[in-house]
């Protein structure tokens, strides 16, 4: 690691001031991606601004038709939360398969979606549920938040404060894990909501994406069979030593059907 200055502010104003004053500052939430990145000297921030001291960013609240999850809420809290298990059980199940238990004890939903790793799990849920990302400046619909590989709609000094996730009628996340890293080679989140069916795919492409053809077919008939003939084009999908684009395209179909079946 290169040396840096560490800050633990207690208010968002102070965070803004620190970020404003230091061009090369980076925000750390759970640190489960950032710290390994720093250890490999792949980033050289002048300052680390830790959000852990801002208590308003942490917690899960029931807003009736939605859950509002604070950005600094850890995966383990989502996984075990009675509110989540009740309101969006698929989200608790998804949190349960992120990383490993020790990572889940530190990693946060805000950190995960702000980093937008192409193989992260949470983006599939946020898009799949048609959520809204609340930031220090605005609200951003999930469909507009994830803009590319490791890229989001956030400005450099803009911070995710919470994620609002509507409760679906039914939802399920199916993940096909990379055997080495255990990140998603393909993860598919399927949700049946008042506003229709949403199918969000992570791991397969450079950024989470929806599959409108599947959503339309499932809107007509919410059964695995309804999407069995829908082929996902492999163009633009990720390809690496663990899975070719062709295999990933195939797995999107399999995981989507299993997720539909899992919606019960």
């Amino acid at each position: 690691m290169y040396e840096f200055n560490y800050h633990q502010p207690t208010s968002l104003d102070e965070v803004a001031r620190l970020l404003g004053a230091n061009e090369e500052a980076k925000i750390v939430a759970g640190g489960m991606t950032l710290v390994p990145t720093l250890k490999f000297r792949l980033a050289k921030p002048s300052d680390l601004v830790d959000l852990v001291g801002i208590s308003s960013l942490r917690g899960i609240t029931d807003a009736g038709d939605a859950l509002v999850i604070g950005a600094m809420t850890r995966h383990a809290e989502v996984e075990r939360s009675p509110l989540v298990k009740q309101g969006i059980p698929a989200l608790a199940a998804l949190a349960h398969v992120i990383g490993d238990p020790a990572v889940r004890n530190r990693g946060t939903i805000g950190g995960s979606i702000s980093n937008n790793d192409p193989a992260a799990d949470y983006p599939a849920a946020v898009v799949g549920l048609g959520g809204t990302v609340q930031t220090t400046r605005r609200e951003i619909a999930a469909d507009n938040f994830f803009t590319g590989m490791f890229e989001t709609a956030l400005d450099r000094t803009e911070i995710v404060t919470a994620v609002r996730l509507p409760k679906p009628q039914a939802a399920c996340y199916m993940k096909f894990k990379n055997p080495a890293s255990r990140y998603a080679i393909v993860g598919v989140f399927v949700a049946r909501t008042g506003g229709g069916v949403r199918v969000a795919v992570t791991g397969a492409g450079p950024c989470v994406f929806r599959v409108p053809e599947m959503e339309a077919a499932l809107a007509r008939s919410f059964t695995p069979d309804a999407i069995k003939d829908i082929a996902i084009p492999q163009d633009g999908l990720n390809s690496d030593i663990h899975a070719s684009a062709e295999y990933r395209a195939h797995l999107v179909g399999v995981m989507a059907r299993r997720a539909v079946a899992g919606c019960g």
Binding site: G31, V35, R106
Partner: peptide
């Protein structure tokens, strides 16, 4: 439980 190699 946390990974002490991933915490400052």
């Amino acid at each position: 439980a946390v990974k002490a190699c991933t915490l400052l």
